[in-house]
Design a protein around this nucleic acid. Sequence first.
DNA 1: GACAAACGCGAGCGGTCGCTCGCATTCTTG
DNA 2: CAAGAATGCGAGCGACCGCTCGCGTTTGTC
Lengths: 239, 239
Amino acid sequence: MSANREMDHQEPQEQQDPRSDQDGQEKEQPRRRQARGERRIAQLLEAASDVFTTAGYTAASTNAIARAAGVSPGTLYQFFPNKEAIAIELGDRLMHELREMYGEALAPVDPATPLEEAVNSAVDRFIAFNCAHPAFFSLMHGPDIPGRLAEEHDALHASLLARTEVLLSSLLPDAAPADLARTAHMCLGVYKAGLELVLAHEGAERDAYVQELKHLLVRYLDPLVGDRPGAAGAPRTGR
Amino acid sequence: MSANREMDHQEPQEQQDPRSDQDGQEKEQPRRRQARGERRIAQLLEAASDVFTTAGYTAASTNAIARAAGVSPGTLYQFFPNKEAIAIELGDRLMHELREMYGEALAPVDPATPLEEAVNSAVDRFIAFNCAHPAFFSLMHGPDIPGRLAEEHDALHASLLARTEVLLSSLLPDAAPADLARTAHMCLGVYKAGLELVLAHEGAERDAYVQELKHLLVRYLDPLVGDRPGAAGAPRTGR
DNA sequence: GACAAACGCGAGCGGTCGCTCGCATTCTTG
DNA sequence: CAAGAATGCGAGCGACCGCTCGCGTTTGTC
């Protein structure tokens, strides 16, 4: 039972960013990149995406990433200060792309929209994104993600949660906030579970799982909004 | 895209089990254990359970496990041939306990049982087990579990899947096998997602999530069995 | 009490990994 | 075309990790 609190490992070093002069510019390095460099960065991120997806963050070695990109480890470290930065840059790019997309995926809380339609639209968009960028899932849901990425994921998750809550609260105005939050958590958890199943299959079977996930969410939420005007139509289509 | 297929790491060594004489006895070692030894083993497994739960399999170091148990690394390796064996022994013990329990959790497919009751009973049992043994979840669902444990988990998962399918097929006799399998997969996936949420909370909030998980499963399955005799009463309680 | 087996220790071996460094090559700029 | 910056390389450093080995201690047996 002795809860031993002090582990023995520490990070190799805590690099200090020598160019942090104290004028407000904490921005990017004044490093001049040539076109070749940008290409290398894209190459490396592409390779990192593959390696992270198949091996997970921790198990992915920087040497493997460099090799997958066809360069030497030294070259990799010309463009990224450390392994974490690779994951962060990759995560940032994917996160940016995602935010552009989901801004219009959950935002329209048009109260007249049928529940089924809203669910279908949101699920379709997110599934499409996650299928197109499988690295996103492993980077966000891996057990070993570095702190910075975990923060980003938490922020994204909180944001999704808030949006879902707003959407739900417009569907069921008379619900305790705690219940609302729980329901939103359940929705996201269910989506994640469905996503795993979707990603594990391909072709027609994958589509069938997408359908099943939509059904699941609709059936979960439908009884809650059963007495709303426009929604909850199609009373139990035998399917 | 160059799919690089050959990684560079290999296991430290592939220990050959020197006492594998060729008479059919591949059983356990003839090692005589003293009471002290059994106590140490229990201690080590307990410590390993903690470390695995908090750090995951790969990140857990054998030195950390030994330290958590208050012994030296050498002592640990007196009782376990390698790190994997620790996880396997722990997994085996938990698996055995689980099988004893879930034999009576999914087996009774009494077709007269209301759906809600069947779901409640199954969920309660599994939630109770997973809450009592949080190491089980991290060992089974970790991304880095060693091969032997993965096989055990696959076997368990397949077994649960089969049982669920049987249970479902008794509820909806006229369903295509593929749909049945998909529905069973969804049920297990949903349970796993709910379990994560349950484990992430405590006290009253945890109970609320358990309730929510039950609701979710019932609402998912209820429309499918809507035209059965005894079950699926309360046609959509507006609530 | 004598002897052997089981138990216990912890420095350290071989290995991988993240990352660095010295040096060569290619590009840009004047 | 020269100078210097950006790019590229790969051996290798330091740290950690799984695991071993030699040796000392405890326990069971006769």
